[in-house]
Amino acid sequence: MSEQQVQEAASKLVAAFAANDTEAYFAAFSEDASFVFHTCEQPLHTRAAYRELWEGWQRDGFQVLACQSLNPVVSLQGDVAIFYHDVATRLRIQGEEIESRERETIVFRRQQESGHWLACHEHLSAMPAHLPPT
């Protein structure tokens, strides 16, 4: 169990998101994962709920074009790890390209049977507008 393993799990999750790879992205989350996004009216309580929302977005023309993780930090807490970073994302939504800067916290839980780290909670918030780019 190490910070490096958590960092690798986070890097794989971000890479799958950046590649718009739905299967690999959702495989990085546990089934009971929860999600809080500043762009959604209410929390999503399961991976299935988020995937349903994601697939609806895709039907409406949503596509991830790029995603960069900046300033990553890992804090180990036994079989749980807190990963947070700044995120620069480029999306296509209904034909329009949008760039965003956000701050994200992902909680990972080490799986007892395999030792792998899966994300069990994600919280995404808007980056305060007054902060300079990093």
Rank of each mutant, 00 (worst) to 15 (best):
T22F: 01
T22R: 11
T22D: 12
E23D: 15
E23R: 05
E23V: 09
A24N: 11
Y25I: 04
Y25M: 12
Y25D: 04
F26W: 13
F26Q: 06
F26K: 03
A28D: 07
A28V: 00
F29L: 10
F29H: 12
S30A: 15
S30E: 14
D32A: 07
A33E: 09
A33C: 12
S34F: 04
F35Q: 01
V36D: 03
V36N: 03
H38I: 08
H38K: 00
T39H: 00
T39G: 03
C40K: 11
C40E: 15
Q42S: 15
Q42D: 08
L44G: 09
L44R: 12
L44E: 11
L44A: 09
H45R: 10
A48R: 06
A48I: 01
A49Y: 02
Y50M: 15
E52D: 15
E52R: 12
L53P: 05
W54N: 04
W54Y: 08
E55Y: 01
E55M: 13
E55V: 05
R59I: 08
D60W: 00
D60R: 12
D60F: 02
G61H: 09
F62G: 12
F62M: 13
Q63M: 11
Q63P: 02
V64Y: 07
V64R: 00
V64W: 06
L65N: 03
A66Y: 05
C67S: 14
Q68A: 13
Q68L: 06
Q68I: 04
Q68R: 12
Q68C: 05
Q68D: 12
S69Q: 14
S69P: 00
L70P: 04
N71M: 10
N71K: 07
N71Y: 04
S75W: 02
S75L: 13
Q77H: 13
Q77W: 10
D79H: 06
V80C: 11
A81M: 06
A81E: 08
A81D: 11
A81G: 09
I82M: 10
I82E: 07
Y84N: 14
Y84P: 00
H85I: 01
H85E: 07
H85C: 13
D86N: 02
V87E: 11
A88G: 02
A88P: 00
T89C: 05
T89V: 12
L91M: 10
R92N: 09
R92H: 06
I93P: 01
Q94F: 02
I98Y: 05
I98E: 09
I98T: 08
R101F: 14
R101E: 14
R101Y: 13
R101N: 10
E102D: 13
E102F: 00
E102S: 13
T105K: 02
I106H: 01
V107P: 02
V107D: 01
R109S: 14
R109V: 15
R109F: 07
Q111L: 14
Q111T: 12
Q112Y: 08
Q112L: 14
Q112C: 03
E113D: 15
E113Y: 03
E113N: 11
S114Q: 05
S114V: 08
G115L: 11
A119P: 05
C120P: 03
H121P: 02
E122A: 14
